[in-house]
Structure formats: C-alpha cells, structure tokens
Amino acid sequence: MYNNQKNESKPLKVADNATGEWNTFKIKMVDDKVTVWLNGQLVTDNIPLENYWDRNQSIFPTEQIELQAHGSVVYYRDLFIKEFLESRSSK
C-alpha cells in the first residue's frame, strides 16, 4: 500500500514486533483489494492496491509477488502462497 496515491496507504494501526523479532503477516488479495493482518491484528482492510507502473490501469491480475525493504537488511522465512479460484458462474 506504500505507493498508493488515491487510496489509503497507511495502516489502521502499528502492530510491528520489536526490532530483531519476527513478524507474521496474513495477506489476502481479491481482485485489486488487499486485507492484511500483522501479528494477528487487522492493519489494512479491503483497500485497493494501485498500479504503481501505470496509474491509469488496475493492478496486474497475475504475475510476480514482490517483497521489499527500505534500506535495511530483511530476512524472509516460511512463505506460503495459496491461490483460491472462485467460480465466475456463481456471481
């Protein structure tokens, strides 16, 4: 959400663990809407993720997952990615 300009870019609350402790995220994305739980606390609730590369288009529906940091050493572990396919005929 860091690069959002029109939609909310800041979390609902700060839920980070202390420096040196692992944080746990659960991230759910449906279409362009993102919900994030950080250490069991809701921090982003169904916010549209904007397309940073072309603001005139929606976020890309497929392709890469990006993990980033802002100038400090970051470690990742135990990444699980699950795709849920929803039947379009049920809509």
Rank of each mutant, 00 (worst) to 15 (best):
E86L: 15
P48R: 02
N51I: 05
E83W: 10
A69P: 02
K26M: 05
D78Q: 13
G20L: 02
I27K: 02
A18L: 11
P48Y: 02
Y75G: 01
A18R: 10
W22Q: 00
K28F: 12
N7C: 00
K28C: 03
S90V: 15
R55E: 10
V30I: 15
N46C: 06
I81T: 08
G40V: 04
E8M: 09
G20N: 01
S89R: 13
K6M: 07
E66M: 13
F84L: 15
Q68C: 08
T44C: 09
T35S: 14
K82I: 11
N46H: 12
T19Y: 08
Q68A: 11
N23A: 00
T19V: 14
Q41R: 05
Q64L: 11
K33S: 09
K33L: 15
F80K: 13
T24R: 09
P61R: 00
T44Q: 07
I27N: 01
V74A: 09
I65Y: 09
V34W: 06
Q68Y: 06
G20V: 05
E83R: 10
Y2I: 13
I27G: 02
K26C: 03
N17M: 02
L38S: 04
V14P: 00
M29F: 05
V74S: 07
S58V: 14
D54P: 05
K28E: 15
E83I: 10
L12F: 00
V36R: 06
H70G: 11
L85C: 07
H70M: 06
T19H: 07
K13G: 03
L49N: 07
V36S: 01
V30W: 13
E50H: 03
S9A: 13
D45L: 08
Q5I: 11
L42T: 06
S87C: 05
V34R: 14
I47F: 05
N3R: 11
E8I: 10
V43A: 06
I65F: 08
F25V: 04
G40F: 05
S58G: 15
K82P: 08
D45V: 03
L42F: 03
W22R: 00
R88H: 09
D45N: 12
Y76Q: 02
R88G: 10
L42K: 04
Q5T: 13
Y2R: 15
V14F: 08
K6G: 02
D32S: 09
F25N: 04
I81F: 06
S87W: 01
M1R: 08
P11R: 01
F25D: 01
E66C: 14
T44R: 10
V36T: 10
L85A: 15
Y52I: 14
K33M: 14
V43W: 04
T35Q: 05
D78H: 12
R88A: 14
A18F: 06
W22I: 05
T62P: 03
Y2C: 07
G71S: 00
V34K: 09
K82L: 09
S87D: 15
P11D: 03
N56E: 06
S9M: 10
D45F: 01
R55I: 08
P11A: 08
V43G: 03
N4D: 06
S58K: 15
